[in-house]
Every structure is written in C-alpha cells, then in structure tokens.
Design a protein around this nucleic acid. Structure first.
Length: 587
DNA sequence: CAGTGAGCGAGCTTCCGCTTGACTT
C-alpha cells in the first residue's frame, strides 16, 4: 500500500475546483481517502461577468458578451492557477446547473491560457457533476467525468445577455421619463413589482359586499351543536344584501323548522395528514418571515449555520447548503434521520426543482439541542430549530385522526346542514410541527361520540350572521416569495435581493411584514408595463426558460443559432418600443 | 475691456445570478 502510493504519487495529483469554500474541507478528506493527493479550491461563485459601467454586449457581432473579472476574483483565480503543476488532473466540480457550467467554462479558459503560458505538460482538465458532498456523491462524480457542456454555457450566456439588455436598455428610458436618478427595471424586479401593484389595484377596486350566512343549532344527546347551512358542494350558503326576498324565505323556512326533528347521516372515517417536506430556500424564508425575519436576514443567519461552529475544538457545519430549490434528501441525510428517530418513513414529496444541484436544507449532525443553545445566539437557534423540525417531521409518520361529518337531508331547496370535526389520535410528525394543525379548522370542533348511521335530531334554534366580504390581503414577505417561486421568477440566491432592490428604489414599503407599493412604484410599474409588457410581465420568465431549455438541449451550432434568434427578438422589441417612445416625445 | 451666457461635452444612474467576506452598527 505504501509503495503503491509512493509510486503513483504524481499520477494522483489533483486540483479539485468547487464554488463554495465551506465545502472544500469535507471534499478534501474524501478525496484523500481515495488516495488522491488533492487540493480543493473554490471560485466563490462566478469569476467573470459583464462590465458594470456599460452594456458589455457587442450587438453587431452577434450579441457577443464581453466578460471581465469580477472585483477580487482575479486574485482568487491567480491563487488557483498557482497550484497547477505538471502531470496534474484538474477536476472542475462547480455546481451541476446552468450557472455552474458557465463558471466551469470561464475557469477552464483561464487554466488553458495558463498552461500554454507556462508550458505545463500532461495536464488533463475534466468536468465533474457532484450532486452531494458525500463519499458516494464524489465517487460517482469521479467515475463519470466529462467535458464542459458548451450548449449549456451558451444558454447561460443567453440568460445573462437577455437580462442585461432588458435591464440596461429599459432603465435609462425611466430616467428620462421620470427625470429621476437611479430608477431601474428588470425581468425579475419589475415582474415582482407588478405582482405587488396588481394586488394593490385589486384591493382599491374591491367593493366588499354584505352577505348573510346561517347557523343552525341542533340538539345532539342534550348537547347544542352548531351546523352550517351549505350547498351540495359543501360551500357556505350566502345571501347577498340585495336578495331580500331570498333572505326572508330562508328565515321563514328555518323558523318553521324549530323544534322539528330532522334526519341526519353520521359518517366517521380514519384519515391522516402527510408531513411537510424539508425546507428549501423559499420555504425557509417563508417560515422565518412568520417569526419576523426579513429574507436577507434569514439568509445571513443560514450562512452562519452553514459555515458552522467549533464545539470542543471540533468544527461542525450545522446545516446543508442554504441556497437550493430542492427538497431531496441525500442518503447521508436519510441515515441521519434514522439515527435520530430510530424508525423513519420515506414520503414522496412533489419536487419541481429545475436543477437539483443541492439537496434540501437540513441539519447535518445529531447534536443535542440544549448544548447547541449555548453556542448559538437566539436568532441562529430559532432558524436552526425551523430546519431541525421540518427535517425530522419529513421522515416521521403521518398524523392520524378520526374525521367526522354529520349531514342533514335536503333541508331547503338543495341546502344541507353540515358539521365537520376531527380528533387526532396519533401525533406522528406533529410532535415536531404542533402548530401545523391550526391550518385545519375541523380540529377546533368537538368530535361527537356517534356511530355511523342515520339519526333524528331536533333543531333548537338558528342564527343569521351578517358579514362583509373581506378585502384581498396584500403580500407579506412570506407570500411574495411563495408567489415568485410559483411563477418561476427569480432563483433561490436572489429572492432576498429582489425584495431589497424594490425597497432601495423606493418602489415598495414594508410595514409590519406587509408589502405596500409606493406611489412611485405604481407609476413606474404602469409605465413599464404599458411599454414593455412582453419583456417585463410575469410570464416572460417562463417564456425565456423554455427558450433557454431549447438552447441547452441542442448541439453547439444550433445552440448558437437559437442564441442569436432569441436575443435578436428581444432586442427588436426594445428597439421598437424605444422608437415609439421618442416619436411620442417629439410630437 | 469685462462680465454674461449660450452651447457643448463629459460623467452618472441601471440588469440577474453565483459566492463570501469586509465593512459598520
């Protein structure tokens, strides 16, 4: 073994490149156990980007992007290059997604230039796809080394250049139209702003109507039980203010029923509640928002938990990576759940993750919570607990409950009396998420001891409740992030940034976790949508994604052609709108 | 001759997405 290692020392020289430095230590240990003499280095995300001060897109030369080093990245890249030696294998293991592929492309170019410059020999560059930082994840990645996927890189360029053209061509139109410095527009921020403005308009134009509902009190074994008057579809029956005759009719009929016996059917069922999936970026931000954390605050706390803490001279990264859109849990995570819970159940959760570069956000060690409380501040501990509870809940058993529905015969014109209740008899995952049952109103009602069957019960009384339709509610931080994710606007790394940008531009205000558009926000949004609906409305991102998908799936030549088509199409829209704007101004 | 002002040109804002760390409070 010793001689073999010495023998192959040079062949096993490896430079392993990832994005996040926090992962490098773990990876380094795993690679050493494979007998590689590896150094693991991190790019810290993108190394190159379009210039900030100008468009950076050569429109006449087929929309060719001009990429420059981001600040401080030249130094990081130089540090990586300095580690390259003869007879080394270089493995680029940036995240397995569109952005990661572009990072791989840029770093590979730098490496190739360096090799030429220094005249280095026997260097092999390859691309690895690592879905999880575990022994098996790395092993699998190294067994299936490949090359950089050029079409995927072109698709990332298309995404980047689209966003640049839209942002940098439209924002100046705003400066001119509003005579204000620093206004901005973009595919993500303007679509998000529109969600908020649309909601405000919905509220403004909403005219709440007054309506009446009916509760009927029934005597069941000397207990007064309140039933709802509902239609066949189990919707509460409403009579609106202008339907006076209907109201009188129902009241009359109900009055006639007082002291009368009515036929009811009782049905009891065994039902269960499935656990919630573990957290991902969007849901973590949503849950934390309910505790009063802003999205960016949540992310900086999660970053600290990810980087971890020292306990008795040993370092513990406390959670998995916190920027993810997946609820998948790695084998290692499942083992961890098993070691904590003993007995686990694997549930299937629907997962619409687009790239799945990272698994769900979960805890990484079975650490004593009381011990941890001493090492974390209050905020960190709260966020850790959210992650802890959702992770363990996801592997726990369903909660089980008795469900009961009591339904009358046809009472009046296809209207029925309904009573629904539930009683939990097995907590299951609810031991980790006790508040979750508040989402089910049936558990607030008494479960009545009645066997299945047909009964006669006496009607005692009824109540007519006067109510007003409630206004649509404005977005909270939590619900806007949910909506952004549902509509596909933005990515896990940018939900928080987008909200901050809208705040910084004074397009929105947040008061008591409620998001209001400002007057400026509404004006800017209306102006932009009237002129650039095609590019800035909510569904443009879905359109763009489908085009990017086409590019990614094509061979290089077709991908280049599709790239040109897409950007020409976008540019033409920008051009025609701008012309229209100038014409109108001159008139 | 000196003061005024027209006219011109330069410089500035801006996008989305991937990562931390260097700042301040």
């Amino acid at each position: 073994m010793k001689s073999k290692k010495a023998n192959s020392n040079n062949n096993n020289l490896m430079l392993f490149i990832v994005e996040s430095p926090t992962k490098s230590k773990t990876i380094s240990n795993i690679l050493n156990s494979f007998n590689y003499k590896a150094s693991v280095v991190a790019t810290l995300g993108h190394i190159k980007d379009l210039p900030v001060n100008n468009l950076g897109v050569n429109i006449k030369d087929g929309f060719k992007p001009i990429f420059l080093f981001l600040p401080y990245k030249k130094k990081i890249v130089n540090n990586i290059l300095n580690k390259i030696e003869d007879k080394m294998s270089i493995v680029i293991a940036t995240d397995p997604d569109r952005e990661g592929e572009a990072i791989a492309f840029h770093i590979a170019n730098e490496i190739k230039n360096y090799i030429k410059l220094k005249n280095l020999k026997d260097i092999h560059i390859s691309r690895a796809f690592i879905n999880e930082i575990t022994y098996n994840g790395i092993k699998k990645g190294l067994e299936n080394l490949g090359d950089i996927n050029v079409s995927m890189v072109i698709s990332q360029f298309a995404r980047r250049v689209s966003d640049r053209l839209i942002g940098y061509k439209i924002s100046p139109v705003l400066w001119q139209a509003f005579k204000l410095k620093g206004l901005s527009a973009g595919r993500v921020q303007t679509a998000t702003l529109k969600l908020i403005v649309d909601k405000e308009k919905e509220i403004l134009s909403f005219k709440p109507r007054t309506f009446y509902t009916f509760k009927v009190v029934v005597d069941i074994n000397n207990k007064k039980v309140e039933f709802n008057l509902m239609n066949k579809e189990k919707e509460i029956f409403k009579v609106f203010e202008n339907e006076k005759e209907k109201l009188d009719f129902i009241e009359l009929k109900l009055r006639e029923l007082i002291s009368k016996e009515v036929v009811f059917e009782v049905l009891n069922e065994d039902r269960y509640i499935k656990p919630l999936p573990p957290l991902k970026t969007s849901t973590l931000q949503q849950e934390a928002a309910k505790l009063g954390f802003s999205a960016s605050k949540t992310m900086s706390i999660a970053q600290r938990l990810f980087e971890g803490i020292k306990i008795k001279d040993k370092h513990f990264g406390l959670i998995t990576y916190h920027r993810t859109d997946s609820v998948r849990v790695s084998k290692e995570g499942i083992e961890l759940a098993k070691s904590i819970l003993g007995d686990i159940k694997i549930h299937r959760f629907s997962d619409k993750s687009m790239f799945d570069a990272h698994e769900a956000i979960r805890i990484t060690y079975n650490l004593d919570l009381n011990l941890l409380r001493n090492y974390l501040n209050q905020e960190e501990f709260k966020i850790y607990l959210l992650i802890y509870n959702r992770f363990l809940a996801a592997f726990d058993y369903e909660a089980k409950y008795y469900y009961q529905v009591i339904k009358s015969n046809n009472l009046i014109d296809d209207l029925y009396l309904f009573y629904e209740s539930g009683k939990i008899y097995f907590n299951g995952f609810l031991r980790f998420l006790p508040d979750y049952i508040n989402n089910f109103p049936i558990f607030n009602k008494d479960y009545i001891d009645l066997k299945d069957g047909v009964y006669n019960f006496k009607i005692i009384d009824f109540k007519v409740l006067k109510q007003k339709e409630s206004y649509p509610s404005r977005y909270s931080i939590s619900s806007i992030i949910k909506k952004m994710e549902e509509t596909g606007i933005g990515r896990p790394s940018t939900y928080a940034n987008t909200i901050n940008t809208l705040l910084k531009r004074n397009y929105i205000q947040i008061k008591k976790n409620t998001i209001y558009p400002t007057e400026l926000g509404i004006k800017v949004c209306d102006f932009l949508i009237s002129k650039y609906k095609e590019l800035l409305d909510i569904d443009f991102t879905a359109f763009l994604e489908s085009k990017l998908d086409d590019i990614e799936k094509s061979n290089k030549d077709i991908a280049n052609k599709l790239y040109l088509n897409l950007l020409t199409e976008i540019y033409n829209i920008l051009l025609s709108e701008k012309k229209g704007f100038l014409l109108k101004k001159n008139n």
